[in-house]
Design a protein around this nucleic acid. Structure first.
Ligand SMILES: [Mn+2]
Ligand SMILES: [Mn+2]
Ligand SMILES: [Zn+2]
Ligand SMILES: [Zn+2]
Lengths: 138, 138
DNA sequence: AAAAAAATGCAACTTTGTTGCAAAGATACC
DNA sequence: GGTATCTTTGCAACAAAGTTGCATTTTTTT
């Protein structure tokens, strides 16, 4: 695990720091997406709030994590499983938000459906967020 | 128009106040979704920030407007065209965000596709947000 | 027109996010 | 390993966004 973490950081040309290792570990351990707030809560050692922001930004830039849109002003972040790179994400899976337990989950095996847009529109990216009851809560 | 505004408020059992009339007018006039911030900008008369929050909340509760999730912490709001009521929204259309002009648009004529979830999951609601180039910017 | 009910504005506060800069830490090179 | 260089961190100070209680104003009801 520790090995894998350093591996990922190195592969992405990020210097290996305690904060980055810890936050990346959090993502690797978690099976649901994390908001900035969740990260600050879950980290026992305290890293400055600003560091967490900057780390998330760095991970985003490198294509290590991706965002999941929400309607409550609390962007969620999750590991990219696919081959995302520096500046280009290719996460084409859908996301699930459980109304019971509140967890946000990447359903990597469910690909985003293709949507037919009206004449003139050009789609770059399709985000699908399904809410309801998850496997556990159902 | 003025007539329609009062009509909508009355139908939803909201008392007719200047703030609500003005904000509802804004939504009726706009062809793109509005964030809280946009509303404060567009209103010339100044209503207190808190009033705007409370108005949006009231409109949401009544099913007059619906939210559109974003990945940048700026929830967008738009009029419900369908038959949304007190507590139950039935907006099953997709949303489009233009990367050029930044506008968020309800594509009322494009229904959300059905997604097949893994065993055990139960979907209540499907949100689809497509981003790319809009009709105008393409 | 008066009474009752509801919405507003204000103040005070909390939470969230941003920026510049000095200190600390990581990497590269010898 | 030891040192120079480059990067990251924490802190402070700030800005923006969101919440709550309460007195005043406005709207609705009678
Ligand atoms: Mn995902
Ligand atoms: Mn819509
Ligand atoms: Zn659940
Ligand atoms: Zn556009």
């Amino acid at each position: 695990m520790k090995k894998q973490i350093v591996e990922i950081l190195r592969k992405n040309q990020l210097s290996i720091t305690d904060g980055r290792k810890k936050i990346l570990e959090l993502f690797l351990e978690s099976d649901s997406a994390l908001a900035h707030h969740d990260i600050e809560e879950k980290i026992q050692e305290k890293f400055d709030r600003v560091t967490v922001y900057r780390t998330l930004q760095a991970f985003m830039d490198k294509g290590i994590i991706h965002t999941i849109p929400t309607a409550d002003n609390s962007i969620k972040y999750a590991l990219c499983k696919d081959d995302c790179e520096q500046g280009h994400h290719h996460d084409d899976h859908i996301h699930f938000v459980c109304k019971q337990c509140g967890q946000t989950i990447c359903l990597d095996e469910v690909h985003v459906p293709s949507v037919r847009l009206p004449q003139g529109y050009h789609a770059d990216q399709v985000e699908v967020v399904v809410s309801g009851l998850c496997k556990e809560c159902n």
